[in-house]
């Protein structure tokens, strides 16, 4: 079982147990991002996490966004490490940049 498959199965399990769940997926990377495109992080409404979208530097911000998507049902496309004044700018220690797509597991 690949790690991405594992995260999907875990997320499906939480959903089946009645929890609200959001899935975050790395969709594009530039520079030295620690996790390749396709890497997933699952987040449950109660705060459970599975998988990763970075070495740990942006998981907190992604989890916050995931909770918004769980509530609204609206997907989000987040930019990290891009040098502008955007709310999502948390910076990556590695100097990489990435885009993360966040969706609700309906």
């Amino acid at each position: 079982m690949s790690d991405s498959e594992d995260v999907l199965a875990t997320a499906a399990g939480w959903r089946a147990a009645g929890e609200n769940v959001a899935l975050a997926t790395v969709v594009e990377t530039w520079g030295s991002s620690p996790r390749p495109a396709g890497s997933r992080l699952a987040v449950s409404a109660s705060g459970k996490l599975a998988g990763s979208v970075s070495g740990g530097c942006i998981e907190g911000a992604v989890a916050d966004a995931a909770k918004k998507t769980m509530a609204s049902g609206t997907p989000q496309l987040l930019d990290f490490g891009i040098s502008d004044e955007r709310a999502w700018e948390v910076g990556l220690a590695c100097g990489g940049k990435l885009k993360v797509f966040v969706e609700k597991l309906a």
Binding site: L8, A12, L23, V27, A106
Partner: peptide, 28 residues
């Protein structure tokens, strides 16, 4: 991700069948 799509994706994985998930990023 809709329940139908999740089920189809997991079924393909159980059958060890290669599939690609295509996501339109503007609306999911």
């Amino acid at each position: 991700m809709t329940p139908e799509l999740l089920a189809a994706l997991q079924e393909a994985q159980a059958e060890k069948r290669p599939v690609a998930l295509l996501t339109r990023l503007s609306d999911g």
